[in-house]
Simulated assay, not measured.
Amino acid sequence: MATVGQNYEQDAFTCPICLETLKSPKSLPCLHTFCETCIGEFIVSTEQRADQNLSNYPCPVCRKVVTPTNPEDETSQWAASLPHNLTISSLILMQNAKSVEQECHICKRQHKISKATHWCRDCIEALCKECLHLHGLMKLFADHKIVQVKEIDTSASEQEPDLCMISDSCPVHSSKSVVAFCFDHHELCCVLCVTVQHRRCENVQVIKEMKYLKSNKINALVFEVNDIKSNIGNIMKDKGVKQVKLEAGFTEIEVRANQLISSIKGNLDYILALFIKELTLHERNKNASLKKN
Rank of each mutant, 00 (worst) to 15 (best):
L31C: 10
F183P: 00
L260C: 06
K64S: 07
N53T: 13
K217C: 06
T14G: 07
L268M: 06
D269F: 03
A156L: 11
K139C: 06
V244S: 13
G266C: 03
E36K: 08
D143M: 08
N267G: 00
C193V: 01
I232V: 10
S169I: 09
H173L: 04
L19Q: 13
K139G: 06
K277V: 05
I43R: 01
I207V: 08
S55E: 13
N7Y: 05
D162S: 07
K277Q: 13
N287I: 14
Q95E: 11
K265D: 08
H282C: 10
V178M: 02
N216T: 04
K145H: 13
L91N: 13
F223D: 05
L82S: 02
A12F: 15
K214F: 07
N231E: 07
E47H: 05
E47R: 14
F223T: 05
K150V: 04
C128M: 04
V100I: 11
S230R: 06
C30E: 01
E151D: 13
K26E: 01
E224F: 01
A180C: 04
S45W: 10
C164P: 00
A142R: 15
H186T: 04
S27C: 09
Y8D: 14
I235V: 10
K245W: 09
N53H: 12
E20S: 15
N219Q: 06
S27W: 02
K229D: 06
H144G: 03
I253S: 11
M94H: 10
K98H: 12
H186I: 01
N85K: 02
N226A: 05
Q159T: 12
S27Q: 11
S76R: 11
K292I: 14
I152S: 06
H84A: 06
K277T: 11
L91F: 15
C123F: 06
N216D: 08
K217G: 09
C120H: 02
T154F: 10
M210H: 00
E224H: 04
V44A: 12
S215L: 12
G249R: 15
D238Y: 08
Y8I: 14
R49K: 14
K208F: 07
K286W: 04
I92N: 05
I146L: 09
N267M: 03
G249D: 15
E101K: 12
W119E: 02
I166F: 14
G266N: 06
